[in-house]
Amino acid sequence: MREDTRIRLMVIILDRGKGVRAAELFASYGLPLHYGTPGRGTANSELLDYLGLGETEKDVVFSLVPGFTIPGILQAAGEKLQLAIPGKGILFTMPLSAVSGAAARFINSQAHRAGTEQEEHMPEQGKNELIVAVVNSGCTDTVMAAAKLAGARGGTVLHGRRVGEEAEKNSDSGVWLEKDIVTILAPRELRLPIMEAVNKAAGVATESHGVLFSLPVEHAMGLSRLDK
């Protein structure tokens, strides 16, 4: 069987302060490229208590990984980062349409295989989607209220800023430059109802001026109790 060297984007969301542990784990596989940003969880207090989450401040770590490392990483993350226990964090991978050749060769040359004997126990593929809503700052509650009515159980918020010539031109005209990026990992069958509900409540035609899109997810860990 030909080794899977295609590069994926791997995302892990953990309680604040634990992102370094994730980067150290990935580095043990020879993976060299990791990018982190602070985030904020949006699950309500009742769900946080149910999941055993003590805080909503999050570390979000993005890594580029070749396919042949994923089985071992999932196994190790379940054990060393306790992602096999619901409420300890979420990890998922997404396919990329293209990666620069130099970066792909470098990542593959540095990465090494481990734990692939557990490949048959990997989570089922293609059952989830990452829904992304980019809205005016302060509109997160509107997004999540609509999403939860459609079946979403929580999300993670990243803070951003609109950039570009048009944004700068309108910076003094009341156009919102500060943006909240709301990410929701959900079962594929809920993608359409969630996106329709969010678009109605916080889409481009509303005061939130939301832009929505979704991305396919290949593997996911840490969702079992959310799914239930």
Rank of each mutant, 00 (worst) to 15 (best):
E119R: 08
Q118R: 10
F62W: 11
K88V: 02
A102I: 07
V99I: 12
M144F: 05
E55F: 06
H159M: 04
A111D: 08
A103N: 09
L74P: 00
I73C: 04
L83S: 03
E46V: 06
D49N: 07
D141Y: 07
T140N: 06
E124N: 00
A43C: 10
I73S: 02
N44G: 05
V65Q: 03
N108E: 11
L83D: 01
H112F: 15
T42I: 07
A84E: 14
N108G: 07
I85T: 13
G39N: 13
A111Y: 13
L74K: 01
T140C: 09
H121W: 04
L47N: 00
A114G: 11
K80P: 01
R113Q: 15
E57M: 15
E79V: 03
N128T: 09
G72D: 08
N108C: 14
T116R: 12
L81F: 09
A146F: 03
P86M: 10
A23G: 08
F106V: 05
V132L: 11
I85P: 01
F62P: 01
I70L: 13
S45G: 00
L149E: 12
T37G: 11
A43E: 07
E129K: 07
M144P: 01
Q118I: 06
G89S: 10
L25S: 04
A22Y: 09
G89L: 10
G115V: 13
G39T: 06
A103K: 08
A145T: 10
F106C: 00
P123Y: 04
G36K: 14
V60Q: 04
H34V: 09
F62G: 03
L83R: 04
N108V: 14
G151D: 11
H112T: 14
P95M: 15
L83P: 02
L149H: 03
D141M: 11
A111Q: 11
R105G: 09
H112K: 15
G54Q: 14
K148F: 00
T156I: 06
V60P: 01
F106G: 00
E46A: 03
V143H: 03
P123Q: 03
A103S: 09
L158Y: 00
L158F: 04
E129F: 07
N44I: 05
V61L: 13
G151F: 12
G89D: 09
L149R: 11
Q75R: 12
G151S: 10
P95A: 15
S97R: 14
L83Q: 04
A98C: 07
H34P: 02
E57W: 14
A146G: 05
Y50P: 00
Q118T: 11
L96A: 15
V60T: 09
L47M: 11
A114C: 08
